[in-house]
């Protein structure tokens, strides 16, 4: 009893109990974040099976193999095309949409609630829904396009158009969040700036370009940075809509890594090496845009 009491009072010093506050999170992060990160460096220079029962050091072989693997290079290209379609359109489009619903009236609040709605859908749900809506034989949008004289478009299974469809679905899912991030930023712009612009005779369009845009520039870079980093990791939307097809035209790098590691082969070393290459690209993009964001505000 005595001992317990003295231990409690020992622990009750703020400086000591702090370790008990942070210990669980540090322990979990060490085991499930830091260890995997360090392990990926090791794995990327190894030949390893899915159970790690066989593992051997192979130097940089996995990396040289990756850069002569046409499917890997294709996956990098697909990831880049996807990002260049998805990110700028979303970052600019959401800015305009956000600027159009800055005022906190009932109608704007309803619009924001609707735009945000895809957040509650899993990628699986989005896949089930849109695959059928865009189905080449019975899709309701396919039907609408055929009424307009386009014939039956094969949205989900065409080497030319499917990458656009996948990018569209990714935008559909997240533009609401981006738009509301802009709304929040635009609401912090001082109203006196708008009043001054109005006195100068600036209309809504000029106010947007001369007051709103300059004030939310750092938000723009923030959206661009987070969306870009996210789109370089694109996996789930592709997995549930096309699985990477047709003929690998929508196979992103993470999709390819997944299939190398988990659905065929269990080639953990090679999969890790490809992940490392992607990681370098993600870090580069993030650092460049982060520096820009800081400079803007």
């Amino acid at each position: 009893m005595m001992q317990r009491k003295s231990m409690l009072s020992y622990l009750n010093k703020p400086s000591r109990s702090a370790y008990f506050f942070v210990a669980p999170s540090i322990l979990l992060l060490l085991v499930f974040n830091i260890t995997p990160l360090l392990a990926s460096f090791g794995l990327s220079v190894s030949d390893a099976s899915i159970t790690l029962n066989q593992i051997s050091f192979v130097g940089l072989d996995n990396f040289t193999r990756a850069f002569s693997d046409a499917r890997f290079l294709n996956s990098l290209r697909v990831t880049l095309v996807f990002s260049l379609l998805e990110v700028p359109l979303q970052a600019f489009g959401a800015m305009v949409i956000g600027a159009l619903m800055v005022k906190n009236n009932l109608w704007n609040k309803a619009l924001r609630a609707v735009f945000f709605l895809p957040v509650i859908c899993s990628a699986t749900v989005i896949g089930i829904m849109w695959r059928m809506i865009l189905h080449s034989n019975v899709g309701i949008i396919t039907y609408a396009f055929s009424l307009l004289g386009f014939g039956k478009i094969n949205f989900m299974n065409s080497a030319q158009t499917t990458i656009f469809v996948v990018s569209f679905l990714s935008i559909w899912r997240s533009f609401g969040i981006s738009a509301i991030i802009y709304v929040t930023a635009a609401q912090q712009v001082s109203p006196s700036l708008y009043e001054a612009a109005e006195l100068d005779g600036a209309g809504a369009v000029r106010q947007f370009f001369h007051v709103t845009v300059p004030s939310i520039r750092s938000t723009f870079w923030f959206v661009l940075m987070t969306r870009f980093a996210g789109s370089l990791q694109i996996f789930d939307i592709i997995y549930v809509t096309t699985g990477g097809g047709p003929n690998f035209t929508t196979e992103s790098t993470v999709t390819y890594v997944y299939s190398r590691a988990f659905s065929s082969g269990g080639d953990m070393g090679y999969a890790s090496a490809m992940s490392m290459v992607l990681f370098v690209f993600i870090m580069l993009v993030t650092i460049l845009m982060y520096r820009r964001m800081i400079r803007e505000g």
């Binding site: 702090a18 990791q233 990681f279």
Partner: peptide
């Protein structure tokens, strides 16, 4: 709270934010 190693532990925590899950999914 004030404690020795606070900055180091907090930096370690922040560092995990820089690593996207998709990149370490295989070793995870």
């Amino acid at each position: 709270m004030k404690f020795v190693g606070k900055n180091a532990l907090f930096l370690l925590t922040l560092a995990t934010m820089m690593v996207p899950f998709q990149v370490i999914m295989v070793p995870s």
